[in-house]
Design a protein around this nucleic acid. Structure first.
Length: 285
DNA sequence: GCGACAG
DNA sequence: ATCTTGTCGC
C-alpha cells in the first residue's frame, strides 16, 4: 500500500462518481482510503474559521515601545508557536517532531519539546495532515498539561492552510483539531487552482518593482488562497503564507513578517533546527 | 502525451 | 522530507 508511489495521479483523487478503471485490489483499497481522507477533510472544513478569532492584538511595529500596550487595555500577542518534522535519512518512516514557542517581541525560544516517532502513513500530496498532524497534536496536548502558561496564542505550521487542492491543508487541519489559530507556511508552491511557479514569479516581479513585497495569491476560481512574500531582502525565493484557522490573511502576514530573521520565519525555523538536533541526539542521521 | 504534485 | 561542496557574506 505504497500510496506515495506512482499510480496516484491527482485525477484519481477526485471523488469517484462513476465506475473505476479495471484496477488491482490494492489500488481499490488505496482509493477507498483516499476517499475517506477526503471526507474527513470536508467534514473538518465545516468548522474552519478564516477570520481573526482571538482577543489579543498584534503589536504594531517592532522593537519600539512595546510596553505601552495598555493603551487599549487588551491582551497582546506574546507567544507564537512553531512546529516541524525532520526525517531520518536512512529510514523515511522515522521522524522527529518538534514544538517550540517563541516570545513574539524578542523571537527567543521560551519552550521546546520534541518526540521521535514512527510514521506509518506515507506522504501523499494533498494529505500531509494524515501523516504529520497526529504527533503534533500530541505535542500540543502534552504542553497543555505541563506548560500551559506558555501555550501559544497562534501556531505557525510548516505546510499550507487554505492554499491546498481542497482548501484544507495541514495548517487548517491542525488548527481545527486543536482549536487554535494557525498560519500555514510553505517553502514551495503547491500548484493549485491555476497557480504555478511561473505565474507567481511573474506577478512577483511585476508587483515587486512597484513597492509592495507582498503578493496576494488569487486562484483562477477568484478566491484568495494566500500570499507570497519575500521575507528577507536578499532572498528572491518567496515563502507562501496561507490562513490556517481562526486568523485572517492580513493578520497572518503581519505576524509572519514580524517573525522573520531569515527567509523562514523563526518559529518554524527553530522547530526545524531543533527537530534535526533531536534526531542527532538519538543517534539517527 | 507529458508534466505538475506542501512535507 | 533527504542526498550533497564549496562558496559568498554578515
Amino acid at each position: 500500500m505504497k500510496l506515495s508511489e506512482k499510480g496516484f495521479s491527482y485525477c484519481a483523487l477526485l471523488p469517484m462518481s462513476m465506475e473505476q478503471e479495471p484496477s488491482t485490489s490494492e489500488n481499490n483499497t488505496s482509493l477507498q482510503l483516499l476517499n475517506e481522507w477526503i471526507e474527513i477533510q470536508d467534514s473538518l472544513k465545516e468548522r474552519l474559521i478564516t477570520e481573526d478569532g482571538f482577543s489579543w492584538k498584534v503589536p504594531p511595529i517592532k522593537e519600539v515601545a512595546q510596553e505601552n500596550q495598555d493603551s487599549h487595555g487588551g491582551e497582546i500577542l506574546k507567544y507564537v508557536g512553531g512546529v516541524d518534522l525532520s526525517f531520518s535519512k536512512d529510514d523515511p518512516s522515522i521522524a522527529c517532531a518538534a514544538l517550540v514557542v517563541l516570545d513574539f517581541s524578542t523571537l527567543e525560544v521560551v519552550y521546546e519539546d520534541s518526540a521521535i516517532v514512527e510514521l506509518r502513513i506515507p506522504y501523499v500530496p494533498g494529505f500531509l495532515a494524515f501523516r504529520e498532524a497526529p504527533v503534533l497534536l500530541e505535542l500540543l496536548e502534552r504542553m497543555k498539561k505541563t506548560a500551559l502558561p506558555l501555550y501559544p496564542q497562534v501556531l505557525m505550521v510548516d505546510g499550507n492552510g487554505l492554499l491546498h487542492p481542497r482548501g484544507f491543508g495541514l495548517a487548517c487541519h491542525l488548527g481545527v483539531m486543536a482549536d487554535l489559530p494557525t498560519i500555514g507556511i510553505g517553502k514551495n508552491l503547491h500548484h493549485v487552482d491555476g497557480l504555478t511557479q511561473s505565474r507567481v514569479r511573474q506577478l512577483l516581479e511585476d508587483n515587486g518593482n512597484s513597492c509592495t513585497d507582498i503578493l496576494t495569491l488569487i486562484g483562477d476560481s477568484g478566491s484568495t488562497l494566500g500570499a507570497a512574500i519575500r521575507s528577507t531582502e536578499g532572498s528572491l525565493k518567496p515563502i507562501f503564507i496561507s490562513v490556517g484557522h481562526r486568523i485572517s490573511l492580513a493578520s497572518a502576514v503581519k505576524i509572519v513578517k514580524s517573525s522573520c530573521r531569515f527567509r523562514v520565519p523563526e518559529p518554524t525555523r527553530q522547530a526545524d533546527i531543533r527537530s534535526k538536533d533531536c534526531l542527532r541526539k538519538h543517534g539517527l542521521n
